[in-house]
Computed example of a mutant assay.
Amino acid sequence: MRLLHTSDWHLGRSFHRESLLTAQAAFVDHLVATVRAERVDVVVVSGDVYDRALPPVDAVALCGEALARLRALGVHTVLISGNHDSPVRLGFGADLMDRVHLRTDPGRAWQPVVVNNVGFYGIPYLEPELVKGPWELAERTHTAAITHAMDRIRADRRERKVVLAHAFVTGGQASDSERDITVGGVAHVPLGAFDGVDYVALGHLHGRQRMSDTVRYSGSPLAYSFSEAGHVKGSWLVDLDAGGAEFVPAPVPRPLTRLTGRLADLLTRDPCDHWIQATLTDPVRPKAAMERLREHFPNTVDLQFAPEGGAESAAAPVTTAGRPPVEVALDFVREVRGEPADDEERRLLEEAIMAYRIKETTA
């Protein structure tokens, strides 16, 4: 029995307002090719299939294409909902699909999908507030919710078990692109909550992680924040009979690079087509910094300012009452840039304020 463990597709997500749909489609191609080449029996997707509860239509189309291609290969695909997904929307038609098994209802977490005598149990993202009452939990925490589901799964007499879960296991390393799940109870779940099964395919954290020999995060297939610049993205290829797992790297559509230094120094570096996050250390914020960076590095998407010598000093309170709007705007320019606006910038601000006044007067 061979399974491919993946998660956190986040279909429909953008990267600093740049569409990732083409890159996500390339991952689907890679996923299908891996399933075919490695003779995978079951693909498990451990939550956050979409990036939001109401995904865009092109993301839904890509998901449908991915599932149809996997089904055409004759494999089973088991999916659970994550904290980004709408359980109702993702779970629509769950009982109508052949070889595609959706587990979005918490009450079905201990009802296995059986493939070759192996039970696959899908624990969707559990909001403690919603399951505490129905499950008669002693406390409103993620640990209580996961423990209840796992106790029911362990009570099943089936010999071989694989669990999918979307949770934050204690000791896992987070990145900047995961949505906080602390609302509704303590977020972390101890590793021991997942004892007693053959393999646990985790989702939620975006970096691949081995929590134990049998408990792993696959991470997201693409980088969704610059904090993931050092990640190797992909999926775990798990051989249940041999008891081992191999990580299969996914294609990198565009590498991520972080640059730090003065603008003039950064512009002397060799150009590249990477996604760029630039942190400028100039004592005074350079004019048109993003435009100049993009001329040299076309895919600069994030610009930050950290002047040499430490953080910028805190600004004194600014009084706006009774002052001309243009003076308030000029104070703002001076504060954020560290030097006053020039004559041309002052003229543009005055024209913009006057145009607004005219519009308000004639509306």
Rank of each mutant, 00 (worst) to 15 (best):
P106S: 10
V238A: 00
R210N: 11
R140F: 00
S175M: 03
D195K: 02
H10T: 11
L11N: 05
L266R: 02
P221C: 07
P56V: 12
E127Y: 10
L96P: 00
I276R: 02
L164W: 03
R262V: 04
K287E: 15
Y121A: 10
V215G: 03
V113F: 00
A94Y: 10
A33I: 06
E339M: 05
E327D: 15
E136Q: 15
V336L: 14
D85M: 02
E246F: 01
D265F: 03
G322S: 11
L130Y: 13
E291Y: 09
Y224G: 04
E350T: 13
V32C: 06
V189H: 08
L67T: 01
E295K: 15
E127L: 10
D8E: 10
G12H: 03
P124I: 06
V301D: 07
V301G: 07
T77Q: 09
D239C: 04
P298T: 09
W9K: 05
V328N: 08
S14I: 00
S220N: 03
A321I: 12
G192V: 09
L303F: 05
F297D: 05
I181P: 07
E178I: 07
Y217I: 01
R154A: 10
L240D: 06
A174P: 10
L240Y: 01
E291M: 09
Y50T: 04
L130G: 00
A138V: 11
V232P: 02
R71L: 03
T257F: 00
R323Y: 00
V114T: 14
A66P: 05
E344M: 05
P307G: 09
H296C: 06
V57P: 04
G74I: 12
S46I: 04
D273Q: 14
L31S: 13
V318W: 03
A53F: 03
E335W: 07
L330F: 12
R71K: 14
A145N: 06
G322T: 13
G234E: 04
G261L: 05
